[in-house]
Simulated assay, not measured.
Amino acid sequence: MAGSGRGQPVGFVLLALGPILAAAYAAVNHVAIRTAVQAQIAGPEWEGGRVDADGMTAVGVDTWRLVWWTALFVGVVAVAFVLIGVLLRRRGRGRTLLLVFSGVLIVPYAVGFLVALINPVKGLGGLYDVPDFVDGVPPWQPGTAFILLAAGLAQAVGLTMAAGAGRRQAAAGQEGTRSTPSGSGRP
């Protein structure tokens, strides 16, 4: 039963969670930034500054860009992990190189998480000296960095499952070649 392939869908789902959770990180932060922008505009320090066609102020646009680029960066790395996971499931050579490359890709994933953990939304709001924006950031927003952490952990488990499945498949292929009869006709 160990080689029955029952864990295959779970491994694929865990690998696919990386790009999905990177997009979720961007989406929930967009909601948080919009909420903060509305608080900034409604705040007592608002002097009728410029608001773009999307209803975003300058600090809102800049924070959204930083969050979007972070999510895109992590999303691209997450897609690379999905591709590596698919390639690891196949028999053949190059598995060690793929595992080494996946180990190297952990670094950009960690950098994306670190940027999110530093919290660019509140950081840029403080840098722009816009207290109404900072006060308008929802209290749950700093926790959104852990969405990227969850994405990385899910993909690490999915990659491990894919590597194990590929290793079992390669071992089964080698066993199949060893147990072929020699053609001598003797038992």
Rank of each mutant, 00 (worst) to 15 (best):
L159D: 14
W64A: 02
A42G: 10
P108I: 12
I84G: 14
R90I: 01
I41F: 08
T57H: 01
I106N: 00
L83G: 12
L149C: 00
V82F: 02
L159M: 15
W69L: 12
G136R: 14
G143V: 05
A116T: 05
G123R: 11
L148P: 05
A58T: 04
R95P: 01
G152Y: 05
P142W: 11
G152N: 04
Q141I: 03
W64V: 03
G125W: 00
F101Y: 11
L153H: 08
Y109I: 01
G152S: 08
L97F: 13
V111R: 02
P120E: 03
V115A: 12
V61A: 11
G158H: 07
L124P: 00
Q38T: 07
G123P: 04
E47V: 02
L98H: 03
L66Q: 00
V37N: 01
V51W: 05
Q38C: 02
L66I: 12
F146P: 04
Y109W: 06
L97D: 04
P138A: 15
V79K: 11
L105Y: 05
I84E: 10
Y128E: 15
F81Y: 13
Q40D: 08
M56Q: 07
G143Q: 14
L117W: 04
W69I: 05
A53P: 00
A154R: 11
P142Y: 06
R93D: 11
F81C: 00
L105F: 06
V79L: 13
L88Q: 10
V76Q: 12
G152T: 10
P139N: 13
A42T: 05
L149S: 08
V67D: 05
R90K: 08
V86L: 13
V157P: 11
P120Q: 09
V37Y: 06
I147L: 15
A145G: 04
T160V: 06
W140D: 09
V51I: 14
V121E: 04
E47C: 07
W46E: 03
R90G: 09
L149T: 07
A116K: 01
G112Y: 00
G152E: 12
G85P: 08
A58D: 13
R95N: 09
D54V: 02
T96V: 14
L114E: 04
E47R: 09
A39Y: 06
F113S: 00
M161R: 02
A80C: 09
Q141W: 08
W46V: 05
G152W: 04
Q155H: 09
W46I: 10
P138N: 13
G158R: 08
R91Y: 04
A53F: 01
V86M: 15
G43M: 14
D129C: 10
D135F: 12
V76T: 06
V115G: 08
I41P: 00
V121W: 02
R93T: 11
L83W: 09
T70K: 10
V74A: 09
V59K: 00
K122D: 13
R65H: 03
V111W: 14
G158C: 07
P120W: 03
S102C: 08
